[in-house]
Design a protein around this nucleic acid. Structure first.
Ligand SMILES: [Mn+2]
Ligand SMILES: [Mn+2]
Ligand SMILES: [Mn+2]
Ligand SMILES: [Mn+2]
Lengths: 225, 225
DNA sequence: AAAATATTTTAGGCAGGGCTAAAAACAAGC
DNA sequence: GCTTGTTTTTAGCCCTGCCTAAAATATTTT
């Protein structure tokens, strides 16, 4: 039977599979801010339910049924985030905590109605793709970290690697939001920082760290698009 | 610390206080579909937290802080019900189960934004009043059970006593919904059933039971208002 | 008032999910 | 190949909230 905790674990496993390819217990300890013994324990529970395959000391993999639950939970999470931002006017750094709860409410029917009400959004407020009702789950876009952009590039922010509150608020303070187009005007070899130009002409220098977490699309360098 | 179960108990105690004046353990067993030992147990927990006053074998009463939590939970429940009906187009008999989960999500801020988004509704889809952000909580209306209406009365459905799925679906089948205006055309002493006339001219006979659970407002008997 | 019935509490368990501390297994370094 | 350090598992415990069965207390009936 599904519980909040089990859904959270399955979702975490899915995300780590995507990001890292393989899922260690340690990676779950970090992602879920928990303890090794708790992870081992839950993996046994999930394996008994047939949602993961787990061999002691070898790691863990989602089964088809586990992946289905994980994708459904992720879909709900991201749809609720869209709701909170688009309809209740929260900012992108405030919504994760509530979506973490809301993702455990409702069934497929409720989720599909929410999806329709929101106009079938393809991406959540952090630029992450929303799995479809059929569990389709691929980005299609070809995003690169802003740290890879070179002087002269026009880049548009399409997502973030780290959607933690601290980082998002940092971007807020820099007046950087999804969709914003920036031009790279300088690049410092020394610390790998870059100076960027905003549409209003102002500029600022961003650290390597900040740039690495910004996922951007390279736009054509000349024309207005 | 607040948990889902504790909030559910406090909400149940609030409702029983409203309906019956005093709250017995037995009444909680029924309202929450649980066992006497579970109730005793939880009442100790709630008393330790300072949310109820409980004297063994004597019953239980909400404290101010307990009432605050109960009202806030009820407010959230009813606002989410409005959301599900008004925005996601669920019918009034489908929303309770999800609201029972949603009521435990979010803080005051989220609730107030939801309230604003919904246009500050005063009543939920079952006609029950929604407590305000300040915990104001009174109906104002003077509703009577339809069973008290007499031949010739024009009555408008404003609420239901029993908002269980079975009863609501019964009303659905009879094409009875909130706001509907009916006229009492016959009254049978024998079984206390009444025949009612719909706005479209059709009529049907409703049982005593059905009528008792309909909360109506008496409209002036003549004019169009 | 005594007996019968109903309600509430206590006692003792159980399942889920968390934790710490210690043991076991694996991975690296020499 | 052994030693060292890291990761994972086991063992044992805690807390929440549910349960049944039995005991205690109230209430109702006779
Ligand atoms: Mn969650
Ligand atoms: Mn997101
Ligand atoms: Mn609830
Ligand atoms: Mn309701």
């Amino acid at each position: 039977m599904q519980t909040i905790s089990r859904e959270d674990y399955l979702k975490a496993i899915l995300k780590i599979e995507e990001e890292a390819g393989s899922v260690s217990n340690q990676s779950l300890v970090e992602k879920l801010s928990t303890r090794p013994a708790s992870v081992t324990n839950m993996l046994h529970t999930l394996a008994d339910a047939g949602w993961v395959e787990h061999e002691a000391y070898k790691g863990v993999r989602l089964t088809d049924s586990g992946k289905e639950i994980a994708l459904s939970t992720l879909r709900k999470h991201r749809l609720w985030e869209v709701f909170l931002v688009d309809k209740l006017n929260f900012s992108w750094d405030e919504v994760h905590q509530w979506a973490e709860d809301l993702e455990h409410v409702g069934d497929e029917e409720l989720t599909n109605r929410l999806d329709a009400f929101l106009g079938h959004p393809a991406f959540d407020p952090h630029g992450d793709p929303i799995p479809t009702a059929q569990g389709q789950w691929s980005d299609g876009r070809n995003l690169i970290p802003a740290s890879k952009a070179v002087v002269g590039d026009r880049i548009q922010l399409k997502g973030v690697v780290d959607s933690g509150e601290a980082y998002l608020q940092h971007l807020d303070r820099l007046k950087i939001e999804l969709g914003l187009i920036l031009v790279v005007s300088k690049s410092l070899d020394f610390d790998e920082s870059k100076t960027l130009i905003w549409p209003d002409g102002s500029e600022a220098s961003l650290s390597k760290q900040t740039l690495q977490n910004m996922l951007v699309e390279k736009l054509s360098r000349k024309g207005k698009e």
